[in-house]
Amino acid sequence: MSNWYMLTLVGKDQPGIVARVTTALFEAGSNLGETSMIRLGEYFTVMMMVRSDAGDDALCSVLQPVVDALGLVLHIHAIDGGLHHRPIPDVCILVHGGDRAGIVSQVTSKAAQAGLNILDLESDVGGTESEPIYILQIEGMATQGVESVEKALAPLQADGVKIDVRPIDTLIG
């Protein structure tokens, strides 16, 4: 029986993390599903769905040499389900403004109350050290409609935050 696991790996960024981790998994007969891998600060972060027949102990021992060599932190979590359950986002929210505490909290709280289910969120701090700017991009499903999300977020514009809520019209052809 095939089982799915969510693997989390975090460590100081260096060349070869993805290559070594995925090679170890491949050689152990595991398969990758959806993954997200990105550098945050000086760290490289990996989250990936892995299918394996061997069990989490075996996955752990397969990865241990790579984890030790590269100084990574590994977490393995058994999960239900598998691939091909991908929801299609219907709304995109772009937020930017001068950096200040609470932007993500306020935007996501109001959006959640308006029925937003976040599928993908990434945020970054740009600008300069003395004048940082915050940039937030969200994709999700507006379960109560895109207008509901737009209306809920509109009051935040008054605080000097630029918020753009747009439908994602996916063309199927």
Partner: peptide, 13 residues
């Protein structure tokens, strides 16, 4: 830029 999917490429946009 727009989001696309395809009958010939299921489960991906």
């Amino acid at each position: 830029i727009g989001r696309e999917g395809c009958l010939s490429v299921p489960d991906y946009t």
